[in-house]
Simulated scan of single mutants.
Amino acid sequence: MSHAPRLATAFSIELPDEASARRAAELLTERGHTVVRVGPRTPGVPYPGSWWRVTGLDEGPYPSDDEHWWMAAEERFIAGAAGDLGGGYACTQADPETARRFLPEGETVADRTAAEVREARLAALCLERARVPAPRILHHLKVPEPDSVLTGGPIPLAGLDDVPWASLTHAYGTAEDVPEMLTRLAAGGEGWSAAMAAYFSAVVHQGTHYESTPPSIGFLVQIAKAPRLPARHRLDLLMGLAHMATDLCHPPLPYEIQTRQEIVRHLPGLLDVWPDVSGPSRAWLVVLAAHVPGTASVRLSEFRAFRRSVEGPSPALDLALAMCADDGDAVLDLTLDAASWHDEVPRELARPGALRDRQMEVLLHLARAEFSPRSEMGESETGEDR
């Protein structure tokens, strides 16, 4: 039984020449995209060496009502085809009528209804596996333990004045205000939410790192290590550090690499809080430790004991532990297993870049789904909670 998705997906593939663009248009037509258009990226300027754009509209139908799964499967195919032909792609979603109205102009190769492409669409997707049931998570690592006090008082930041912040930059210009942001974070209390928002707006703006990002890491770690820091605030910082170390461009940009290096450098000291923190914070510490198997090995027995204390399945902890132990076979098995039920995992595994970076991205997606509470950083960023 087929299913018509609520939203249509418009794919745009940019390719280096007309021949590759027409080949991509053939592929999208064969796969049952309802509207397929091709033309120069700059309309009316088909000069030698110009890039070409192919647009295709996927209106379904899909083999089942698991829309996110089948859309992700189609996106993986498009990504692979675009890469094979020497280009790249982007996609947007809208209701079918709106998507058709705003599809870029070009030579129309195909223009059909969803009913007319039904057989071709289902034939293309029948080569993909349906989603298997996700593990049923029984643990409560999304729920941070309540704090006994609202704030433990300001945390002193050693060396804050030694950094030439005014000569560095962030998203909005000079980083001369970063010390104030960090001091507000160290103060805790009712200003925590605003301080987190200020830092993650300027110093890590929408995931982008700047000159001021790497030198700020040591101060975040100082705050996270402070015994007086409320548990909920520590959890926010650990999640933030995990995202900053993992969720990078492909290939990583220089400031991203430096940020990750700073997090790795401070990781042994950060792990010293292990005996005194609750389960949710421990889960994120294991995720962070997966970045450095050599560093993680000194606490591997403690990590494993923690895993034994966690009830039921935990794909994120299992993968993090395999990465901490540098067990390549187990990491491969666990990522492939996750790819059978998690939308984002196949996409991450198919990306270019170093294998371990892609595996860390997979781990981050699993950790978000399992461990991210509604926090000062917002609901689990990818909406992957199951």
Rank of each mutant, 00 (worst) to 15 (best):
A73F: 01
W274D: 07
R6C: 06
M181Y: 13
L237T: 02
G153F: 10
P104I: 03
P227A: 07
G86R: 11
E128D: 13
Y255P: 07
A110S: 14
S212K: 08
L125P: 00
D177F: 01
S193C: 06
S281R: 02
H140N: 11
R53M: 13
A123R: 15
L125C: 08
H140A: 14
G191M: 09
D326T: 00
D326N: 14
D318S: 14
A197V: 02
V204T: 02
R31K: 10
R6S: 12
M239Y: 02
H139F: 06
H266P: 04
V331I: 14
E262D: 13
R232A: 13
A90D: 13
G328R: 15
H33L: 11
V45L: 15
L321I: 10
A339V: 06
A320R: 00
Q222P: 06
V345F: 00
T108K: 12
D58A: 06
T151R: 07
G44H: 11
M239Q: 15
V149E: 15
A354S: 06
L267A: 07
L363V: 04
V178F: 01
P313R: 01
P215G: 10
L15S: 00
A8N: 00
V109M: 12
P156T: 06
R299I: 05
S278L: 08
F371A: 00
G83L: 01
E105K: 11
W192V: 05
R37E: 03
P146F: 04
A24S: 14
A73V: 03
V264K: 02
T246S: 15
G60N: 00
H139R: 09
I257L: 14
G60Q: 04
P313E: 07
V286R: 01
D276T: 13
E105R: 09
L229C: 04
E97M: 09
S372H: 15
F11H: 08
P48G: 06
A114G: 15
A325T: 04
G88R: 12
P313C: 05
F102Y: 12
P214Q: 05
S281L: 03
S340C: 11
P214M: 09
A24C: 15
A338V: 06
R22D: 11
S212N: 05
Q258E: 15
H233W: 07
R101T: 09
G44S: 13
Q93A: 07
A320N: 01
L267G: 07
A72R: 00
G106C: 09
G189M: 08
A242D: 13
A19P: 02
E75S: 10
H243G: 14
S314L: 08
D276L: 07
G218F: 10
T9A: 08
G44M: 12
G152Q: 09
L182R: 01
G240I: 02
H342Y: 05
T29C: 07
T29K: 06
